[in-house]
C-alpha cells in the first residue's frame, strides 16, 4: 500500500512538470478558444461556444490561404530535403578521403539559429544591396526580387529551409543506412541488378522505417516553421500575406490584434492538423511494413 504512495511521490516531479508545461497550457488554450477574449487575457471574457472556429473556417482572406501555404511550404520543403538528403546520404555511405570535413561542413547550417539564418539570407538576397544580385549581374542575369517579391517569397523560403534542414535529413538517413545489412545488396548484385535497381528495390524498402521517422520529424518541424518566415517577412508574412502560414497567422492574431479567443481556436485547429498528419504518416508506414 505504502509502496504505491512512494511510487507516486517519486513520479510527482515529472507529473507536476508535465501538468504545468503541457496539460495546463493545452486546457487553457482549449478554454480560451471558446471565449471572446480580447485585449487582455486576464480581463473578463464570455464563452461563445464554437463561434471562433466558425469564424476561422469562414475566413477566406487569411485563414484558408494560410492553411494552403502551410501545406505547400511543408510538402515542398520536406520533399526536396528528402531527395537531397537521401542523395547525400547515399554518396556519403562509403568512406572517402575528406569525409570528416564534408560532414563537419554539412552540419554548419544546423548549428545556426533560424533567426540568424533568416537575417543572413535577408542580407544576401536584398534586391538592391544584396550580394546575390551582384553575382547574378556579373553573369548577365537581371536583378531578382527574391524575398521582396510576392510570388517568389514562399519558394525562396522553401529553398532557405532546404538549405538549413537537408543536412539533418542526411544525418538521419545516414544513420539508417549504416544499420542495413550489406548481404541483400550483394545478393541483388550477384543476380545482375544495376545500381538503380539495387537502390530502388533493396535499399529503399529496407530504409523505410528510418525514412518514415525522418519524414515525420521534418514534416512536424516544417508545419511549425515560424522563425525564418517572421525574421525575413515580418508580421503577416509580407505585404500581401504571401508567406503567412498558420503559425504566423496565429502569432499575428495574438500579438498584433490581441484577439486571443480566435488565436486559440486557430491554434487548436493547427494542433489537430499536426496530429492528423503524424497519424496518417504512421499508419502508412505501418501498412507498408506489414
Amino acid at each position: 500500500m505504502a509502496n504505491r504512495h512512494l511510487k507516486w511521490l517519486m513520479l510527482s516531479p515529472a507529473l507536476l512538470f508535465v501538468g504545468a508545461m503541457i496539460i495546463f497550457p493545452l486546457l487553457f488554450t482549449l478554454n480560451l478558444s471558446a471565449t471572446d477574449a480580447f485585449g487582455a487575457v486576464n480581463a473578463g471574457a464570455d464563452h461563445i461556444g464554437l463561434r471562433n472556429f466558425a469564424d476561422a473556417f469562414g475566413d477566406h482572406r487569411r485563414f484558408w490561404p494560410a492553411v494552403w501555404r502551410t501545406i505547400g511550404f511543408t510538402v515542398s520543403a520536406v520533399l526536396l530535403e528528402t531527395i537531397f538528403g537521401l542523395a547525400l546520404a547515399m554518396l556519403m555511405r562509403r568512406a572517402f578521403r575528406g569525409i570528416r570535413w564534408v560532414r563537419t561542413i554539412l552540419i554548419i547550417p544546423l548549428l545556426a539559429t533560424p533567426v540568424a539564418i533568416g537575417i543572413l539570407w535577408l542580407l544576401i538576397l536584398d534586391p538592391t544591396t544584396g550580394i546575390a544580385n551582384h553575382l547574378l549581374g556579373a553573369l548577365g542575369v537581371p536583378p531578382q526580387e527574391f524575398l521582396g517579391s510576392v510570388r517568389a517569397s514562399l519558394p525562396t523560403l522553401v529553398l532557405i529551409d532546404v538549405w538549413q534542414w537537408t543536412p539533418m535529413m542526411t544525418l538521419l538517413l545516414l544513420a539508417g543506412l549504416s544499420t542495413l545489412s550489406e548481404e541483400p545488396e550483394e545478393a541483388a548484385s550477384m543476380d545482375g541488378a544495376n545500381a538503380w535497381q539495387r537502390f530502388r528495390y533493396v535499399v529503399l524498402p529496407m530504409l523505410g522505417p528510418t525514412l518514415t521517422t525522418a519524414l515525420v520529424l521534418r514534416a512536424v518541424d516544417g508545419l511549425k516553421t515560424f522563425d525564418i518566415i517572421y525574421a525575413t517577412k515580418g508580421a503577416g508574412g509580407g505585404s500581401s500575406f504571401e508567406a503567412e502560414t498558420l503559425n504566423v497567422y496565429a502569432y499575428g492574431l495574438t500579438f498584433d490584434y490581441q484577439e486571443y479567443g480566435l488565436a486559440a481556436a486557430v491554434l487548436v485547429l493547427f494542433t489537430l492538423f499536426i496530429i492528423g498528419v503524424v497519424l496518417v504518416l504512421r499508419r502508412r508506414s505501418a501498412r507498408s511494413a506489414a
Binding site: D126, P127, P143, E145, F146, G148, V150, G234, S239
Partner: peptide, 12 residues
C-alpha cells in the same frame, strides 16, 4: 522606387 518596395519599412 527600388525593387522589392513592398517589403520595405523604415529599416529597409
Amino acid at each position: 522606387g527600388p525593387p522589392g518596395a513592398t517589403n520595405m519599412s523604415l529599416e529597409q
